[in-house]
């Protein structure tokens, strides 16, 4: 498969100002400012092949967003090289922009006070799309993403609806790569699932390469073929998702809400992390017991009101990687 993103020893250093707390600290920093270098991305190298769905994972502040911002041409790196579709992003930003799509979970492209259709029309002019081609593409995406709220001002949309429209805005020009920075941040489980399904479908139907950053292990598990884990600016894992799950992710978190006060929990591989008057927080070692058996056990022995199953937080997976 053709390599379409290639990164070599990429490094980004920010100068960070430090100051002591309070007004006195601020006063002191005016006359004697103190700076230090913060290495956000520390000599990372990796490749992405056409058609891949790559999960770029890491805790907050690991360097995920900085990397994606360098790859789309927003930031200049301090050193190193990057090649995206044959372009150096920070030097050939505009040429690259015609061929990639970007979605930043925290930086919407949609105009807040206007319906999404107005932003889509603007995008068609920004990308200089032919009118007929644009209408056809818009219809396809609107059907695919089930956008039945084209004429509702964006401020009235739910976060999930807004994110679906954001992704449509970034796909109108048929990009070859879509880079999504935390696309599921703040969404509820149903909305997250919907976004994941759509990204996956898009990859299958159009062979769009997906580069996705997230701090949510679930995103990667449901979507990606490969995961890169970054921590403190360095890559700590770069391999298939199967290997990651086999070697490092063998626990699940199960949060149970109960209608009655809980009894004692006795189940192989289940460790009680937290117990409240009407809730249990369990960590299950999947090598010793399965999730479905645990649910059977819980529903048989407790009055369960609600259950939430999730992967362990990314920080724990990273600790596991370091331990090995």
């Amino acid at each position: 498969m053709e390599t379409i993103i290639s990164v070599e020893k990429l490094r980004k250093v920010f100068l960070t100002k430090h100051k002591e707390a309070g007004l006195a600290g601020s006063f002191k920093s005016v006359f004697k400012p103190r700076f230090s270098e913060y290495v956000a991305v520390n000599d990372i190298s990796f490749d992405v092949k056409r058609g891949e769905i790559l999960g770029f994972l890491g805790p907050n502040g690991a360097g995920k967003s900085t990397t994606i911002k360098i790859l789309v041409g927003i930031l200049y790196p301090t050193s190193g090289s990057a090649n995206v579709l044959g372009y150096t992003p920070w030097k050939q930003r505009r040429k690259l922009a015609y061929r990639i799509g970007t979605v930043f979970g925290q930086k919407p492209q949609l105009w807040y006070h206007l319906p999404a259709i107005d932003t889509f029309n603007l995008m068609s002019r920004i990308y200089e799309l032919d009118d007929r081609q644009y209408r056809k593409r818009l219809k396809y995406l609107v059907d695919l993403f089930e956008i039945d709220y084209l004429d509702v001002p964006v401020r009235r949309l739910s976060l999930g609806q807004r994110m679906r429209a954001e992704i449509v805005a970034s796909l109108l020009h048929e990009p070859e790569i879509i880079l999504l920075d935390e696309p599921t941040i703040g969404l509820d489980i149903i909305a997250k699932q919907k976004i994941r399904e759509l990204i996956s479908k898009l990859n299958r139907e159009e062979n769009v390469t997906v580069f996705l950053t997230s701090h949510d292990m679930d995103d990667v598990e449901k979507l990606c073929n490969r995961a890169i884990i970054i921590n403190h600016g360095k890559i700590v894992y770069n391999d298939t998702l199967e290997r990651l799950k086999r070697d490092y992710v063998h626990t699940k978190r199960i949060e149970v809400k109960l209608a009655k006060a809980p009894k004692t929990l006795v189940f192989p591989g289940a460790k009680l992390i937290k117990k409240d008057e009407f809730s249990l927080n369990i960590e299950l070692d999947q090598k010793r017991g399965s999730v479905s058996d645990l649910i059977d056990y819980l529903t048989g022995n407790f009055e369960v009101a609600d259950i939430n199953i999730s992967d362990p937080p990314i920080e724990e997976i990273i600790v596991g990687i370091y331990k090995k």
Binding site: Y98, R99, W111, L114, D118, T119, N121, L122, S124, R125, I126, E128, L129, D130, D131, Q133, H173, E174, E176
Partner: peptide, 22 residues
């Protein structure tokens, strides 16, 4: 070549007019 062959009928003026309308 996909992006290059894409018809780019609208130019900068079209974009400026649309930006003003928005």
């Amino acid at each position: 070549a996909k992006a290059k062959t894409k018809q780019r009928r609208h130019g900068l003026i079209d974009f400026l007019v649309m930006a003003f309308k928005i």
